[in-house]
């Protein structure tokens, strides 16, 4: 076997890869050619160090938990496709539909709320009813609309510039929108005190989800429910999680 052939074969060989007679022959020939053996040793060492280097790219600790918050959609079993079973299932669905129609009147779905307010807020130009960088001034304006309404900015967002805000109403729920900026980027924070939604985010930790193409983070704190759009997840994590604890007060 020629030196060039051996190199060509072993250039692409990773230890642990499936071996072929050709690879075995090339490896055996290393014993006969010290120069080739040295070349192969250097190549293997280089690859091994690169493997270690790539394996040491740090992975955020929170990522796994964030991923696992997305439940998989279960596949429909094969019996679903059978006509009789399908008819039976249709009857069940009709019944279930009646139940869900009834239950829909009891509580709104948080996902629907989120989608609607995000659509509404970004779809209007100008999207702010009041422009101010002063939270106190904003609250004064808010009180003129609803004497009981007031907002505080979560501490993690204190370093952002308030641009102003507006109020929205979704199926009878009062929603306050605060618009922040950092550089050229805008972020919208939706705050509601309504707790009658189905599927509210947990109190202890935020939910990360894309909604209408926007990255959103939702969380509940006290009697308020927050939805933040326009901020990437890692930035959010850095701003709101310190020493293993969430600081979502606001």
């Amino acid at each position: 076997m020629k030196t060039a052939d051996v190199k060509q074969i072993l250039e692409h060989y990773r230890e642990g890869d499936e071996s072929t007679p050709e690879i075995a022959k090339a490896l055996a020939s290393l014993n006969l050619h010290p120069d080739l053996a040295a070349w192969y040793k250097a190549k293997t060492r280089f690859d091994s160090q690169m493997v270690q280097a790539v394996a040491q790219i740090p992975v955020p600790k929170e990522l796994r938990a964030a991923i696992l918050k997305t439940p998989p959609v279960l596949q429909l079993p094969s019996w679903w496709r059978r006509p009789i079973a399908l008819a039976a299932a249709a009857a069940v669905l009709l019944f279930a539909g009646g139940i869900s129609l009834w239950s829909a009147h009891r509580g709104e779905n948080f996902a629907q709320y989120k989608k609607s307010v995000i659509d509404e807020s970004w779809g209007r130009a100008p999207h702010l009813d009041i422009e101010t960088s002063d939270v106190a001034e904003f609250n004064k304006w808010l009180a003129s609309i609803d004497p009981h309404a007031t907002v505080t900015v979560p501490s993690g967002l204190n370093d952002l510039n308030l641009r102003g805000g507006r109020t929205l109403e979704w199926r009878g729920h009062r929603v306050v929108l605060l618009c922040f900026s950092q550089g050229a980027k805008h972020m919208h924070l939706f705050v509601t005190t309504d707790r009658t939604f189905d599927g509210l985010p947990p109190q202890a930790a935020p939910d990360y989800e894309k909604c209408n193409g926007w990255k959103t983070v939702s969380w509940a704190q006290g009697n308020r429910t927050y939805v933040l759009t326009g901020m990437n997840y890692l930035t959010f994590l850095k701003k709101f999680r310190h020493s293993g604890h969430w600081t979502m007060d606001g």
Partner: peptide, 10 residues
């Protein structure tokens, strides 16, 4: 890091 997080989660 941020894009890697988002890409993996997505």
């Amino acid at each position: 890091e941020a894009q890697a997080w988002d890409l993996t989660q997505e």
